[in-house]
Design a protein around this nucleic acid. Sequence first.
DNA 1: GTTCTAGAAC
DNA 2: GTTCTAGAAC
Length: 736
Amino acid sequence: MEMDIDATSEVQEGGEENKGKQIVVVLVGAPGSGKSTFCENIMRSSSRSWARVCQDTINNGKSGTKQQCISSAATALKEGKSVFIDRCNLDSEQRSDFVKFGSPQIEVHSVVLDLPAQLCISRSVKRTGHEGNLQGGKAAAVVNRMLQKKELPKLSEGFSRITFCQNESDVQTILDTYGKLGPSDTLPNGCFGQKNSDAKVQQGIMKFFKKLEVPSDVASNTSDIQSAVPSHVIEKKDQSVTHEEVKVRNEQVANVPTLAFPSISTADFQFNHEKASDIIVETIEEFMDKLGNARLVLVDLGHGSKILSLVKTKAVQRNIDSKRFFTFVGDITRLHSDGGLHCNVIANAANWRLKPGGGGVNAAIFKAAGPALEAATKERAKSLLPGNAVVVPLPSNSPLYNGEGITHVIHVLGPNMNPHRPNYLDNDYTKGCKILHDTYTSLFEGFLSVVQAQARFPKRSSESIRTEPLVSKDKTEGVSGSYFPDSDGNIKEDDHNEFEKSKKFRGSEGKVSSHGNHPREKEENRKINGAAMNKAWGSWAQALYDTAMHPEKHKDVVLETSDDVVVINDVYPKAKKHLLVLARCKGLDQLSDVCTEHLQLLKTMHAVGLKWAEKFFNEDASLVFRLGYHSDPSMRQLHLHVISQDFDSKHLKNKKHWNSFNTAFFRDSVDVIEEVTDQGKATLRDDDSLMSMELRCHRCRSAHPNIPRLKSHITNCRAPFPANLQQNNRLVAPTR
DNA sequence: GTTCTAGAAC
DNA sequence: GTTCTAGAAC
């Protein structure tokens, strides 16, 4: 028997005795919620063959990886066992890999041990020899952090049955249910035990935030537990900022990107102020590290604002840097003209229809911004769900743009506790708190995306992307330029600037001429004496050339041949569907060789690519394709990539793979055709910095630290594609 | 383009 | 200790 699997009985041969379905039970619960005890109890008495896959012990008694858990579970399932996934599994992303075990023979259940945080913490603190080695004082902080991210499972994730336990008696009931389950028994599908909000539920997460009895040794080294802060600290300093102070600050920081935002949900949506202020400070704290020099400002109209004073106090308690976050009294639509506070982005507490009207902030912002905002908003989104945000670049004809220097409005919709408004949560603060946290997270992420885009393209103008970006004009401008560009959110332009920035950077290193990789040198190398210079292709780079010239020799991979093109499956596909349309034209090695005479060929290649994309839609209507060329391909012979946007492939392994399809290095076929038509050549972006760019989700643009994390994110991200991809038919989806 | 692997990062 | 990246060889 494997060390990492506890089994209740010897391995059973095949499934002969197991006529019923196997079950994978994905446990969900914080450390100390009793997951291991739960499994052990059932395995002691069950007549079914169970295996427990425990991440805390899977690695020869030490903690291991999710991947190891997946393999162990797969092994146990092959042996005919049912399996407990004994790890926290607190969010859907963590759970998704285990849901995938579901099949006609295997049901996937979830059992949620949603016990009071206080109980989990006291158990975690008490336990000394716990397998997961989560002991003593750190436990409280860890449990706290984990519960903030808690996301209860839903049937829509793919579970056939979910059972919620909110107290010990619920746990006992479900222990009996699973304990009695014989090898061929099944349980009814659906959600069980989920209670509407009541005192018990709130004990879980929110009571913990507010008041918690923690052992003194915990309090001394856990700064994120509020009650650990002695009450006298609360009165120690006042974080409110007078207008005079702001003016001084502003002079030094006129170009500092700043988001002004109102308190969400606490006015008309009647969200509890105490809880809301916790969440505001909480979320700000989470974003502090990512902010750089950018600032967040909570704005409210009245001097006696309760929410402002609560947030101020809590920000001080948590030692939040008052230069990067502060509160401000004033009208959010007149911060610059009335208050002297320079903000480039403001948040709007929008309604779900994203329409003007109602009262409060929403009415004020739409009124102040004029019809331009309404039109720009309509372009981006039609409606908004609670917890979400939509970033709208403010057209330059808006008075808010001209008068206040605001470049973007971020609409957000928070949770609603007002029975007379849509999406009423009926006092369910478990849900409400999560949604409010999501709302601020979406807001701040939206703001950061604006900041990052503007930092990459500090001097935005309406100049065409096709103007030559190759020569830097003035070394002093650029990086330190204005953060207040126009409202054009074209991502290509960002990349264009990225190009220039990295060029300057390298220039200052003084080793530009030492190798031929510099983009400008590449460009020059190709054009010495006006003649194209050939790139030296390695022996391994000839495969496509050979296929294009002699398709008959490669019948195994060729899908289609005509006089102009050969279509093949990419040998190392980077997505579920990944084809190459090869040009059958000698001497046409890559995109830089393309000129007006190839225009017809480009159109043919595009049409053939589209035809194949449409063919695949018949098999899978969820596919979305992009057609395009690599600026600097590794393989010789011009080839058009036709690639589905799932990027679900074991061959997608590194940063270059990702960035070659998800930065400006990838030239959309539609744009190439347009550029060659207009200018006789395609724009190339083959700066090395594009390949080393941070890994960002192609849908929601969130950044991820490494390839595995990115891949696990993209399997679940269903955010709409960014606006620039949705324009000009860059994305190809089935016509419905 | 991939594979292999040393060593950085966690 | 394991995971992950990045550079060299092909």
